[in-house]
C-alpha cells in the first residue's frame, strides 16, 4: 500500500533521513522504532507531504506522491496524525473533528465518522463542547487520533501517540490503535517510544538509526533480537 524507496530528507543543512526504504502492505500494522533524533518524524513528514524529500520516491497505492503537498495526499486517504498533535486549540472538540472530515470524500460520511470516534473514545463525547486546548494530554491524543479517523484514512500514520502520557494511558491508547487494525482492518504505520508494547502489537517493524533503516522484520522476531533488546528495551 505504501512504498518508500531511497528517501533522503534534509532538515536544515543536514540530511535527517538518508536513503530510507520501507513498505507497508494493506491491512498491516507496522511499527517504526529508533532512538530520539533518528529521523523517524522527518521521514513521516516527508511521506505525508509536510516536508519535501531531496531524493527518493513515495508511492501510495500505485500513485507516485513524492513531493505532493500534504492537502492532496490527505485526499488520497493517507492520513498523518503528527507528533505534537497539531490540534486547533481554540476550537471545540466537535469542531476539530468536523474539520478532520473537511474533504468532500470525508464530509459525506462525517456523521457516521463522528459517531465511530465517540464510540471509540467516549471521553471525547463528554467533552465535545470544550476547547481542544483545555483538554488533558491523553484527551488531546484521543482527539488527534479521532480527527485523523474522521478524514476516513486508508492508511493511518501515527507519530508518537503515547508521548507524555502515563504508562497506563499509553497502553490504553495503543490497545485502541490495535483494535483499529484488527477489527476494522485499518492499515497502520506507528512510531512510539513504548517499544516493547508496540512490538507486541505490531505485525512488522522497522528500526531507524541516524537517518537510516538499520533493521527490519516481523515484530515478534525483532522483540527477541538481542541487539534490539539491548538498545531499546534496556534488558
Amino acid at each position: 500500500m505504501l512504498e518508500v524507496s531511497g528517501l533522503t530528507v534534509y532538515y536544515g543543512p543536514l540530511p535527517a533521513v538518508r536513503e530510507a526504504s520501507l513498505k507497508v502492505a494493506a491491512g498491516q500494522f507496522v511499527g517504526l522504532i529508533g532512538p530520539n533524533g533518528a529521523g523517524k518524524t522527518t521521514l513521516l513528514k516527508a511521506v505525508s507531504g509536510l516536508l519535501r524529500p531531496a531524493a527518493g520516491r513515495v508511492v501510495f497505492d500505485g500513485t507516485d506522491i513524492t513531493g505532493w503537498p500534504a492537502e492532496r495526499i490527505c485526499e488520497l486517504g493517507l492520513v498523518h496524525v503528527p507528533e505534537g498533535r497539531k490540534l486547533f486549540p481554540r476550537l471545540t472538540v466537535l469542531d476539530n473533528l468536523r474539520l478532520g472530515a473537511y474533504l468532500p470524500r470525508a464530509r459525506a460520511e462525517s456523521d457516521r465518522a463522528l459517531k465511530e470516534v465517540f464510540d471509540l473514545f467516549p471521553r471525547l463525547y463528554e467533552r465535545r463542547r470544550q476547547l481542544a486546548g483545555t483538554l488533558s494530554g491523553g484527551e488531546q491524543q484521543m482527539l488527534a487520533i479521532g480527527r485523523g479517523l474522521a478524514a476516513r484514512p486508508r492508511l493511518l500514520i501515527l507519530d508518537e501517540p503515547t508521548l507524555g502520557l502515563s504508562p497506563r494511558l499509553a497502553h490504553e491508547i495503543l490497545e485502541v490503535i490495535k483494535r483499529l487494525n484488527s477489527e476494522r482492518r485499518l492499515t497502520l504505520l506507528v512510531v512510539s517510544q513504548e517499544v516493547v508494547h508496540l512490538l507486541k502489537l505490531a505485525d512488522y517493524a522497522f528500526v531507524m538509526e541516524t537517518g537510516r533503516i538499520t533493521a527490519e522484520g516481523p515484530a515478534s522476531e525483532l522483540i527477541a533480537d538481542p541487539k534490539v533488546r539491548k538498545v531499546y528495551v534496556g534488558l
Binding site: 505525508s48 507531504g49 509536510l50 503537498p69 500534504a70 492537502e71 490527505c74 485526499e75 492520513v79 498523518h80 496524525v81 503528527p82 498533535r85 497539531k86 490540534l87 486547533f88 486549540p89 481554540r90 476550537l91 469542531d95 468536523r98 474539520l99 478532520g100 473537511y102 474533504l103 470525508a106 480527527r147 478524514a151
Partner: peptide, 24 residues
C-alpha cells in the same frame, strides 16, 4: 460556517490544517 472554521484552523495550526486537507 465551515469555511470560517477552516480559516480559524489555518490561523491556529497551519500544519494541522494541511493534514486534514485544507489548502492553507
Amino acid at each position: 460556517t465551515f469555511i470560517g472554521l477552516a480559516i480559524q484552523a489555518v490561523a491556529q495550526e497551519p500544519d494541522g490544517a494541511r493534514l486534514v486537507g485544507i489548502r492553507a
